[in-house]
């Protein structure tokens, strides 16, 4: 039941998470920050705007991103194969990339290409993580993971650390906010969207928060308090990292992901496989 509610209310909960994040971020910079409901004020304001579109495919892909993102979350939460949830997430990001590269704006095209770099950096890790969870739990089903008696985090510490460092890539946070890169390509893939279509992207990002933090929660197994603790720690860690680093180059990101994160996670998986 709770997962049905979580799925249906994902955009609203995601909005709250985003609102809390903005306040936390502001406080880390010694500012007050916007009110908690600011994302929703933004939402209503954007909905009020005139729908302008460049061409129909572009607009469709924006909405597609939102729907695919929500669908991926639904697959994840409503008890299905974790791998399929990962692949639906790929579809969501691909929709974004196709939409962004279908327009002639150089910022949008550059952003689409950078978004692809993001994908080749974090998707292998997502798959590795799901495989690692399978090795521990023995099932791809989320219900089995959540019913697992042991502590997955204790057997997958390196995978958890690697995943923690990929979260900034997925949520577009410094040091890996490369596809968004406000000071360089001004939001990248989202720059040409406006009004309700931008709203779809904006809300899609909130759903992504829930999606990502659900995976963090899974590392607690059946110990929900541990899962919640991990989520809070991960949230704080990501915001601290966001506030304590400059943006890197996309080359550095790919190098970091393939040269450090993926080998580290793979090592964990290999040791686990050998040990079992």
């Amino acid at each position: 039941m709770i997962n049905v509610i979580l799925t249906l209310l994902a955009p609203i909960i995601g909005g709250f998470v985003y609102g809390i994040e903005r306040i936390v971020k502001a406080r880390m910079q010694k500012r007050v920050g916007p009110p908690l409901l600011q994302p929703f004020y933004d939402f209503f304001k954007l909905m009020d705007k005139r729908p302008l579109m460049i061409h129909s495919l572009h607009a469709l892909m924006g909405i597609m991103y939102f729907i695919a993102e929500w669908f991926a979350l639904a697959v994840l939460l409503l008890g299905n194969d974790l791998l399929i949830a990962v692949f639906f997430h790929v579809i969501a990001v691909l929709a974004l990339v196709i939409g962004a590269s279908s327009v002639r704006s150089p910022y949008s095209v550059l952003g689409a290409l950078r978004e692809l770099m993001h994908m080749i950096s974090y998707e292998p890790l997502m798959v590795l993580m799901v495989v690692a969870l399978f090795l521990v739990v023995g099932s791809f089903d989320i219900r089995d993971v959540l019913a697992y008696e042991g502590y997955p985090i204790l057997r997958l510490p390196l995978v958890f650390i690697a995943f923690l460092l990929t979260i900034p890539m997925m949520l577009q946070k410094s040091p890996f906010d490369i596809a968004e890169a406000h000071q360089e390509i001004i939001g990248g893939p989202e720059i040409e969207y406006s009004g309700p279509f931008y709203e779809a992207l904006y809300t899609g990002k909130w759903i992504e928060y829930i999606y990502v933090f659900t995976f963090v929660f899974l590392f607690g197994g059946s110990h929900y308090w541990l899962g919640v603790l991990l989520v809070i720690l991960a949230f704080l860690f990501i915001n601290l990292l966001d506030n304590a680093s400059a943006r890197l180059d996309f080359r550095a990101m790919v190098k970091f992901a393939w040269g450090f994160l993926i080998p580290m996670a793979a090592l964990n998986v290999i040791l686990l496989a050998l040990w079992q």
């Binding site: 880390m28 910079q29 601290l240």
Partner: peptide, 18 residues
């Protein structure tokens, strides 16, 4: 990076200046 990490944590618990 680490220094800013600690600074951000300190800021989080201290009063904002706005």
């Amino acid at each position: 990076m680490l220094k800013m990490f600690i600074e951000s944590l300190k800021n989080l618990v201290s009063e904002p200046e706005t």
